[in-house]
Design a protein around this nucleic acid. Structure first.
Lengths: 207, 207
DNA sequence: TACGGATTTGAACAGGTGTTCAATTCAGAG
DNA sequence: CTCTGAATTGAACACCTGTTCAAATCCGTA
């Protein structure tokens, strides 16, 4: 017993987070034990506590990192342009960011209820912040008469649910490439907020 | 100890399922113990085994019941009509069925990974069956030229994800009534499959 | 080569897990 | 009122849970 040869926190730390993300995505937070995570990394359970104060913080850190990465990537990929261009950029960004991160997305959505109240609030706030990006585009598009939208909040949630749902079935070796999926979903979104010849709508203000 | 006064399986049985559904929706299957469920019902853990052979079967029964109810209700609400009418009927049915069942929906989506492989296959099959209802409408609408759809499988998944997502935020005392939500989502769906003046699409056949 | 800090072990803690079952009590039919 | 079967208890089983910590070992520096 004692320190193992070749052990370094810069190596073990990321491996702990990767193992935790993988196992939690697969079995769920509550179903995964610290001993399982440790075994995956090849250490004893006690050593995990060099990398997280407790199990709850481990989950929170994974989710917070994911949300921060998301917001930073969105920030970096912001573009100028009319609302339609911005909407397209948002849709394509969302898909490109989420598809390679299916496990993190899974965990960030499914394990919300396993967060302590304080941690839940923080994650929820980050999520709201991201949704605000899309809602801002929709509002602006509606203001300029480019979009036809009955309720920008509902439309925001509908679009995000639709896009994020891709993570539940996409497989890298599946029938469709990421580019095809991107194109199809952009078409769906574009049409759903487009000017509708069939039946004009009236706008409802958010309360 | 011994049998309690007023105890009947027709009463306790449903109470067990209700308690289990509520607790699992709130905390997750793995995080809920048989003793917690029993306490919720007001009995000892051992008595639960009069109503389920084991914890896994309890989860599976909840999910299977939900899916069977869904398919039966859909069957009963089928209507004749052109694809657009049938699509509207499906969208409105989906929302009306799911909104009062948020907990069951939650459990049926989140706890899939806690099902034993055999049970998972059965639930997945029921889900596929339900998705087939929508895909059938979309295919028929495309065949008749009523809808403009690039990929009926993708469009099916997109629409269902969008609609089911409502369960994640809808509250009975919220800003919007179920009827308003129904109207808004129907508009979104109708436009997304409608003939698109802005940019014609080409159809891709499923493989 | 010697030393201090980083890293891990392995045992221990108090409590919780799903499940079983003999004993017990109640409900309802005859 | 009796008797059978349904319903429940409460204890027990073997095992797993998150977390702590002294002891042991290794790494990098001096």
């Amino acid at each position: 017993m004692g320190r193992k040869t070749g052990s370094h926190s810069e190596i073990t730390g990321p491996r702990v987070r990767e193992a935790a993300l993988r196992l939690i995505a697969q079995h769920g937070f509550a179903a995964v034990s610290m001993r399982q995570i440790a075994a995956e990394v090849g250490i004893q359970a006690g050593a995990l506590y060099n990398y997280t104060p407790d199990k709850q913080s481990l989950l929170f850190d994974l989710m917070q990192s994911h949300m921060h990465e998301l917001l930073e990537a969105r920030e970096a990929s912001r573009t100028r342009g009319d609302p339609l261009e911005q909407l397209e950029a948002f849709v394509r960004f969302h898909i490109r960011f989420h598809l390679p991160r299916q496990r993190a997305v899974f965990v960030s959505y499914m394990e919300l209820r396993n967060l302590a109240p304080d941690n839940f609030s923080k994650i929820e706030q980050l999520r709201t912040c991201y949704e605000g990006e899309l809602q801002g585009i929709l509002d602006e598009g509606h203001r300029l008469g480019d979009f036809e939208i009955s309720d920008s909040k509902i439309t925001t949630l509908a679009i995000i649910a639709m896009l994020t749902g891709i993570c539940n079935w996409y497989r890298e070796d599946g029938r469709l490439s990421a580019a095809e999926i991107e194109a199809d979903y952009w078409t769906l979104v574009r049409k759903s907020v487009g000017i509708d010849a069939a039946e004009p709508m009236r706008h409802r203000r958010a309360v």
